[in-house]
């Protein structure tokens, strides 16, 4: 790894009672990198993400964020400088879109006019119509719009690191594709370091620079899609086979140069 890691996991372990959710995981994520953590349910991928901003505390090992051991920094301050996109938005139903987006700057005591300007800027950034959505409640939005608000909220306090917990999982395929592409573009434009949890290998391959595969709390393999393809692990190869097979079937079924 050439540049210094934005996030570094060293022998991280987390257990819930007798269940070991994360088992001795070591992983470095470089600044500006987009890493997808892929695994089935119960693989420990979401636990790993929640350990990163201390939503839960590790039982063993160390995690450093931008060079600092997170065990030694204030957990509230840590969370305010890391953006977090929740699985199905996690928007506060009693707050307007603008209030949801501006929540972290508000907690940081940013003056109200500044927050308002930042909210407008973010609405443009996540491609939401300002006049139509700004003052509405989350319940009035579609699933995709809600997740765009979730992304805007995560970015509001200008974090350098964004954590995403299956952000596009509950969306229909078209919305999901558009949102993924849009976020990939934001990641590049804003120079973010992104860790995205997903169970969908196709999504991981299309969006991430690097993929980490987890199973039963252990990190099985990590690397670019090409590197993973050279892995000897049967589970990793099985995960990669699925998108490949889909592509082959799609190519066979769809005309190569049709209007769609």
């Amino acid at each position: 790894m050439l540049s210094k890691p934005a996030i570094s996991y060293r022998h991280v372990t987390k257990n819930f009672g007798p269940v070991v959710a994360v088992d001795d995981v070591s992983l470095d994520i470089a600044e500006g990198e987009f890493v997808a953590v892929v695994g089935g349910s119960g693989s420990g991928k979401t636990t790993l993400l929640r350990l990163t901003n201390r939503l839960i505390e590790a039982n063993g090992g160390t995690i450093t964020v931008e060079g600092e051991d997170i065990g030694t920094v204030d957990h509230v301050a840590l969370r305010r400088r890391i953006g977090y996109v929740f699985q199905s938005g996690g928007l506060f139903p009693h707050l307007s879109v603008a209030d949801n987006i501006g929540i972290t700057p508000k907690l940081l005591a940013v003056p109200a006019p500044e927050i308002a300007a930042r909210v407008d800027e973010l609405l443009v950034l996540v491609r939401l119509d300002r006049s139509a959505h700004r003052d509405r409640l989350p319940e009035a939005l579609s699933g995709g719009q809600r997740q765009r608000v979730g992304v805007a909220r995560a970015l509001a306090a200008r974090p350098r690191i964004v954590l995403m917990d299956e952000p596009f999982g509950a969306l229909d395929p078209l919305t999901r594709d558009a949102l993924g592409e849009d976020f990939r573009e934001l990641h590049r434009k804003l120079g973010l370091t992104t860790v995205m949890i997903t169970h969908d290998m196709t999504e991981a391959i299309l969006l991430a620079d690097r993929i980490a595969v987890m199973r039963s709390g252990k990190l099985l393999a990590q690397g670019t899609p090409a590197e993973l393809a050279r892995s000897g692990d049967a589970y990793v190869l099985e995960l990669l086979r699925t998108p490949r097979r889909q592509v082959e079937r799609l190519n066979a079924l769809l005309p190569q140069d049709g209007p769609a």
Partner: peptide
Amino acid sequence: ALLEAAKGVGM
């Protein structure tokens, strides 16, 4: 999930 979101945004 909302309680976790509240923590997550830094409350």
